[in-house]
Computed example of a mutant assay.
Amino acid sequence: MADPRPPATPRRTLGMPDLRALETFVAVCEANSMVLAAERLGLSQSAVSQAIKSLEEDLGLQLMDREVRPARPTHAGHVLHEVAARLLSQARAAMDQVRASARQELAQIRLGCVDSFAATVGPKLIRAMAGQARQIQMWSGLTPTLAGQMLARELDMVICTDAGVQDPRVVQRLLFSESWVAVYPKDHPVPPLHTLQALSAAAGALPLIRYSQRSVIGQQIERYLRHVGVQAPRCYEFDATDPLLSLVASGLGWALSTPLCLWQSRQYLDAVQVMPLPPARLGQRHFFLLSREGEWAGLDDDVVRVTREVIRHDTAPAIRHCLSALPASALSCPDEESL
């Protein structure tokens, strides 16, 4: 049997007015004229009228008495005017607070760097950036850890040696590149390494001292060794350059490293000899800046620029002076052929 009662009328869900519509309404009330309010807001009169009608529809109330000229607020309109004026004032204060907070964030940068960069280029980067940011807090560590900290927003920017972060919001920019070099004990006879095949033979009976597989540099060097066909038993492995070079300096083995790593541990350079390698695919490691797109108002661009300037004018000349056997191309920026 059919229900004789008429179908229920759907209950209307009232919308929440937006701040722009409230701003328009407050302007009309204070100007006592839609025409003047439109001029002050830079809107057409029809746009102002439509905004008022939309507010009335959202609230389900008549806000303006259009039977009088000029139109005046109704009782509900007067109440809304008072409430909306306070709300707009609070909204403006909130936006000012957000902007101030953003400026404060720009003044305090949490920068993560791999150890070799932090110990060599890092101090000069901080000094050069001091006029643009009140405080740069620098962390150092391994690339995977730093990348994870950035994705968790524990760091603002990261300088690392692997651009494999899979996040569309993260911008990855190449800073500079450096070539692998071979390091042997000081008194060990080593002919010039004209071919990659001579790399392992030059070491003779010395074992290869490796960076550990926990580090990106260790993984990259292993890929390079496989590429050039060098096979060496696993004997000694270290996360850092200092213990690696100390064993080479003691005559206990040879190693592959980079100019920046060697410069970080330069106290051992008098006890080792550094040899450049023939160019090869996978023969370099690359440094990248990772930052979130659109969050730093160009400050990340400044980090890129200043880093390259420090490399070009300070770090690379110092390394070339100490390691004269290395070609200028051993340390290079993407916007120049060499440093």
Rank of each mutant, 00 (worst) to 15 (best):
R5A: 15
P7K: 13
P7D: 14
P10R: 09
G15F: 08
L19S: 15
A21Y: 01
V26G: 03
A27Q: 05
C29H: 05
E30I: 13
L43P: 02
S49W: 03
Q50R: 09
I52Y: 01
G60C: 13
R69I: 12
R72Q: 08
P73V: 03
A76D: 08
E82Y: 13
A85H: 06
L87E: 02
Q90I: 07
A91S: 09
M95D: 14
A100M: 09
A100L: 11
R103Y: 12
Q104Y: 12
E105Y: 06
L106G: 00
S116I: 05
A118C: 14
V121A: 03
K124H: 13
G131Y: 10
A133V: 12
A133E: 05
Q135C: 11
Q137M: 12
L142I: 14
P144T: 07
Q149T: 10
L151T: 07
A152M: 09
R153C: 14
L155Q: 01
M157A: 07
V158S: 00
I159C: 02
D162W: 00
A163L: 07
D167G: 07
P168R: 09
L174A: 06
S179V: 02
V183I: 10
P185K: 06
P185C: 08
P185W: 04
K186I: 11
L193S: 02
L196Q: 06
A198R: 03
L199A: 02
S200D: 11
A202V: 06
P207W: 05
Y211K: 03
Q213I: 14
R214E: 14
G218W: 04
H227C: 10
Q231D: 15
P233F: 13
C235P: 04
E237C: 12
F238C: 08
P243A: 08
P243C: 10
L245K: 00
V248H: 01
S250H: 13
T258H: 02
T258P: 02
Y268M: 12
L269E: 02
L269A: 04
L269K: 05
V274D: 01
P278R: 06
R281C: 15
L290T: 01
G294A: 10
E295Q: 08
W296T: 05
V303S: 00
T307R: 00
E309I: 06
E309S: 07
V310R: 00
V310Y: 03
I311M: 03
D314T: 09
D314I: 06
A318Q: 10
A318V: 11
I319C: 02
H321R: 15
C322E: 11
A330Q: 00
D335E: 15
L339C: 11
